[in-house]
Write a protein that binds this DNA or RNA. Structure first.
Lengths: 143, 143
DNA sequence: CTGCAGTTTGGAATTCCTCTAAACTGTTGA
DNA sequence: TCAACAGTTTAGAGGAATTCCAAACTGCAG
């Protein structure tokens, strides 16, 4: 059988804390998102996984849920390609490799990238976040 | 009045060098793009400017041209928001402020931001580019 | 001037995503 | 337990940005 609620309570609690009613759909999507380590998914991908797992959910709900989770701090949205949003289950401070040839996004281990200097924010603004994306292409043969 | 070909030959030459036939449309768009210092434009914006300047050009051509210029190294594409591409006339090594509240993109002066350490590229890949985007929000009143 | 490869174009098509109004469901309180 | 309502879900329409397409156009070599 399926074992519905494994390391599940934490997520359930976080949903409640965020004021999100723990519905069948949200719990199902949360399980897909959070039960296999860090992930980077698009809405379409997650929708596909849910369908494949016979978890009836509409695409609109997948979008709603991803945005609600993001607002609640359970996910982080990463923009690397025009016209496609990735959602990252790792909400800690970190940056990304983006494989341009495959469209794959990958976390960069915490400390191996850092800013030497952060410029001052223009007057009237404050830094909301710093995104660093290292774009990778397939290696050309040795020079 | 309008003085059609001021600091124009350089662009014309660059187009030729890139194998792009210097057509009416491409020259016109190049003038809009390159005659007023560094800019960050979207396709729709540029299309609007061309229309306003009585420069007949279709939206499809604006898209084609922006991509061809980018491929030729005259422009650089910057992705900060899902579903909208900015094209930057500054192709030198630099990074960006992004004003989340206005959608405005702004160059960060060359040296005021730099990486302390660049992680090794995963096997089989090489670093194509590093994008740093500092996202700004409106300053909340003094803490 | 002619011919053609390279360009441009309007409109249809596509892709992602959001909106809407109606149906549904967790929770609360009697 | 159960009614009732606010919060959710949903299918499909709607929308924004971008690409595709096939026909018309235009630099440029000869």
């Amino acid at each position: 059988m399926s074992s519905p609620s494994r390391p599940f309570k934490p997520v359930l609690d976080r949903l409640k804390k965020a004021g999100l009613r723990p519905t069948r759909q949200r719990l199902g999507l949360a399980r897909l998102l959070f039960s296999t380590g860090d992930r980077h998914v698009t809405a379409e991908q997650l929708f596909g996984e849910a369908s494949a797992a016979d978890m009836p959910v509409s695409l609109a709900t997948v979008y709603n849920t991803l945005h609600q989770f993001t607002a609640a701090g359970l996910l982080r949205e990463v923009v690397v390609e025009a016209g496609r949003s990735y959602f990252d289950t790792n909400v800690h401070d970190h940056h990304h490799f983006f494989h341009e040839h495959t469209g794959q996004l990958q976390d960069i281990p915490g400390t191996s990238v850092a800013l030497a200097a952060l410029p001052e924010a223009p007057p009237g603004t404050r830094v909301a976040r710093v995104d660093i994306i290292i774009r990778l292409s397939a290696d050309r043969a040795a020079d």
